[in-house]
Every structure is written in structure tokens, then in C-alpha cells.
């Protein structure tokens, strides 16, 4: 049922090496940094998260830097389902989405019934976006239909909420698997495909993201349908974020350089972006000491 599109691993790496040689400076860099900021899914997924921390994070999402009110807000705040209500309330009146990780995140090792229930509950709590995990065990065992059926079922449970499907590429071993998992997720109804939970190493990498972007591109050429992309985990520096943006621009074109179509799942990236934005504006290298931690 699924046609395997083989991935040229060496080609992917060479393409990335070439794209990384691009140098973005001055005004273009400043614009790219602001764009990356507006694409952030500001994330907190610790078991020790409290309503207080989530409120703090939401304040940062609305206005990333007190000293620069002209900067854009981030795209979404990403939390565990039990904190969705807190986040929703804190973001009232702002156009920032609340994303909830659901379906027994991060492992997905639970019954489908329970995972669907959790999804419905998170949406009911007010989540605008659901980040689900696929069953990697089933995928690696070759039960592709079962994986697709699960994704479709969760999509249905999401209702109006957007569905992001986490492939957890760190556990898929090969780029061929990444491509196949991307194709399955896209056909089963994902609105976004996402690299990782952030709980497994390696998390997002440039090669994996490029393969997923190519899957999105091929699907778009075939059907005209737009699928979003979200690399998550391990993107901590502005420099790396800009490399991702170059890759998106060169694979999917400028229309994908929009928070509706591309997101970064990250927590520490926000401060590095702010630091580089101030550096670009003042010419003085900045310190993390002068930016809020959460």
C-alpha cells in the first residue's frame, strides 16, 4: 500500500553542507531571527512543571522580551494536557495557540482507547493543537496499517484541533524509515509532522528534517495539500535555527516560511534568538544574564 521512496543519504548530507555554507547577515539576519521567534512552540515538558511555571512561560510567549515590545509573539505554547487550562487562561485575548502533547506522551505505550480519551480530554480542556506520538514499535515491526489507523483515529478525536504527528526519528534508525513514517503520517491525516518528543537523543537533526520536508513537498506536488513541519528538541542556538530556515526556504519555498506551516519546538532557543536580535541591533555581544529564564 505504501510506496517506499528511497532516500539518498549522501545526497542529503551534501545538500545540507552546501546550504549551511550560506551566510545571512545584517537586515536579513534580523528579519530571519524575528521570523524564527514567531515560529516558536515555546515548550515546557518536565514532570516538575507547575501552573506557576506555565503562567511564566505564557507571559514570555506573549512578550518574549520586556525591553523590546515590538518583537513578535511566539506561535504556540506547548504543555502537558493537565496544564492546558492554565495556559489557555494565561493566553486569553492573544493569538497564541496552546498545544498539548497527548496519546501517552512520550512513549505512546498505552491502549488506543486510553490515548483517544486523553486526546479528547485535552481538546476539551482547550487545546488548539495536539502533538501525538506514533507507535514506533508497531512501525518498526512493519505494521504500517496499524500505525496509520491509529493516526486517523486520533485525528478524528482531535475534532477542530490541529494534529501534529511526532515520528520520534531518533528511534527510526534510517532516513528511509523517516521518509516512510512521514508518508504514512501525512496520508493518515496529519496537519503537521514533527521530528521528536525531545525526550530521546538524537532529537531533531538537519538531515532528518530535510527528508521530512521532501515528503511534504512531494505530497504537495501530488495533491496540492499543505502539511506543516515541526523540528523539535536539540535546536538551542539561533545559528542552527537559521540553518533550518534556509533549508525550508530552499525545499518548500517562501510560502512555508510562516508560523502556520513551520514551527520550532524548543525552550532555550527563545533566549538565544533574543540575544542575537539585541546583538544585531546594538553591535554588542549579549549575555544570558539579562534575559528571563522562563
Amino acid at each position: 500500500m505504501y510506496t517506499l521512496t528511497p532516500v539518498d543519504q549522501v545526497g542529503i548530507e551534501e545538500r545540507i553542507a552546501r546550504l549551511n555554507a550560506r551566510s545571512i547577515k545584517k537586515e536579513a539576519k534580523l528579519e530571519a531571527l524575528k521570523l524564527a521567534l514567531s515560529m516558536l512552540d515555546l515548550t515546557t515538558l518536565d514532570s516538575k512543571d507547575t501552573p506557576g511555571k506555565v503562567k511564566q512561560l505564557c507571559a514570555k510567549a506573549i512578550r518574549p522580551c520586556e525591553a523590546m515590545p515590538e518583537l513578535p509573539s511566539v506561535a504556540a505554547v506547548c504543555v502537558y494536557p493537565n496544564l492546558v487550562r492554565v495556559a489557555k487562561k494565561a493566553l486569553q485575548g492573544h493569538r497564541i495557540n496552546v498545544a498539548a502533547v497527548a496519546t501517552a506522551f512520550p512513549s505512546g505505550m498505552s491502549s488506543l482507547k486510553f490515548r483517544l480519551e486523553e486526546t479528547r480530554w485535552a481538546v476539551n480542556e482547550g487545546a488548539d493543537e495536539i502533538d501525538m506520538v506514533v507507535s514506533r514499535g508497531k512501525f518498526l515491526a512493519g505494521e504500517y496499517d496499524a500505525v496509520a489507523d491509529e493516526i486517523s483515529a486520533v485525528k478524528e478525536a482531535c475534532g477542530k484541533a490541529h494534529l501534529k504527528v511526532i515520528l520520534e526519528t531518533g528511534e527510526l534508525s534510517t532516513l528511509d524509515n523517516v521518509r516512510l513514517a512521514s508518508d504514512i503520517a501525512i496520508l493518515a491525516g496529519a496537519d503537521f509532522i514533527k521530528t521528536s518528543t525531545g525526550k530521546i537523543q538524537p532529537a531533531a537533526t538537519l538531515p532528518v528534517t530535510l527528508v521530512m520536508l521532501q515528503a511534504i513537498r512531494d505530497h504537495y506536488y501530488r495533491t496540492g495539500k499543505v502539511i506543516g513541519m515541526k523540528p523539535a528538541g536539540g535546536i538551542a542556538t539561533a545559528k542552527l535555527a537559521l540553518q533550518y530556515l534556509v533549508m525550508v526556504r530552499e525545499t518548500l519555498g517562501e510560502t512555508w516560511l510562516h508560523p502556520d506551516r513551520f514551527r520550532f519546538g524548543a525552550s532555550t532557543l527563545a533566549n538565544d534568538l533574543l540575544r542575537q536580535i539585541v546583538k544585531e541591533k546594538t553591535g554588542v555581544y549579549q549575555s544570558l544574564d539579562y534575559f528571563s529564564k522562563d
Binding site: 554588542v284 555581544y285 549579549q286 549575555s287 544570558l288 544574564d289 539579562y290
Partner: peptide, 8 residues
């Protein structure tokens, strides 16, 4: 200038 101005 860099030695004296770097915020870190």
C-alpha cells in the same frame, strides 16, 4: 571595543 563591551 569587543573586550570592553561584551555583556557576558
Amino acid at each position: 571595543a569587543q573586550f570592553s563591551s561584551h555583556m557576558d
